[in-house]
Design a protein around this nucleic acid. Structure first.
Ligand code: ZN
Ligand code: ZN
Ligand code: ZN
Ligand code: ZN
Lengths: 137, 137
DNA sequence: CCTATAACGTAACACTATAACATTTCGGAG
DNA sequence: CTCCGAAATGTTATAGTGTTACGTTATAGG
């Protein structure tokens, strides 16, 4: 592993291609949209995309948007270290996604989990609505 | 249809069947699981299920779980009136879902929306983990 | 080199959801 | 009662999303 490369050092070819497609996109992409984008790069089957996505999500470079069945590149700096649970505000007009850290909401949900003795593993928070840009325009 | 069914009065036949399937189930059901449950009642195509589900979700009797692509009957009393956004704790062990009102979390997310001028339309909050019952057993 | 592991390629399949179009049901206007 | 429009329904086909299965290839460590 090279010393201080701020690029993703350990991505394989397919993972790099998928991650590139996501970072190059304005908004989230479905797995099949990614597949179409990467046909010229040799992608032929959805599994190639899903396998890369699985790894990228596991690493934390990509998030899955459950309410869209789509994926988006993490908007955090590469080396922000511990990437806590993120929340997403999805504009239903322009399709853009704003990722943010819902600290207070998370604390409240963790408190609920403690009280109910629910062993929390993963939290999904997705907001749907219209972004400021689309409201004013 | 019998006289004084204490079921919701304004449901159509298909809506009633689908709602009955969901209330009779231990946990959430996918649309196709509902379809299979209702084959003996004349259901033949997914659209029959999806149409009923659309209406039931619109009415507020049923919730869609985005992270499961499944549906669950609302656990609130039928006439609880304004049904605010609900949150769901999904046990990955037994599959049961606990619906609750995440008031504090919602307030925090609404505050974020105000600050970002994001016109919030719908909020999805889904917790994954292991319920108390499955942890102790 | 040898081997274990991860990544990759390909085809087939399973699951989730909607489009399109015809038909039926039902309540209100005339 | 009859007519009409809206809502609900029935049916077929198709689109979109995700996984299983199996075989091959690249990679790193001993
Ligand atoms: Zn992120
Ligand atoms: Zn927008
Ligand atoms: Zn509810
Ligand atoms: Zn459980």
């Amino acid at each position: 592993m090279t010393a201080h490369s701020h690029a993703k050092p350990d991505l394989t070819k397919n993972q790099g291609l998928v991650f590139g497609a996501l970072t190059g996109a304005e908004g989230p992409l479905t797995a099949y949209a990614i597949l179409d984008l990467l046909r010229d790069d040799g992608f032929r089957a959805p599994l190639q995309v899903y396998r890369a996505l699985d790894k990228l999500v596991e690493i934390g470079l990509v998030h899955r948007l459950e309410s869209l069945n789509a994926f988006v590149a993490c908007s955090h700096p590469v080396d922000c270290g511990e990437h806590k649970t993120a929340a997403f505000a999805i504009c239903e007009d322009c399709g853009k996604v704003d990722e943010f850290a819902p600290d207070a909401a998370l604390q409240s949900l963790q408190a609920w989990s403690r009280q109910e003795k629910f062993a929390l593993a993963k939290t999904t928070i997705e907001l749907r609505g219209t972004c400021a840009n689309c409201t004013t325009s």
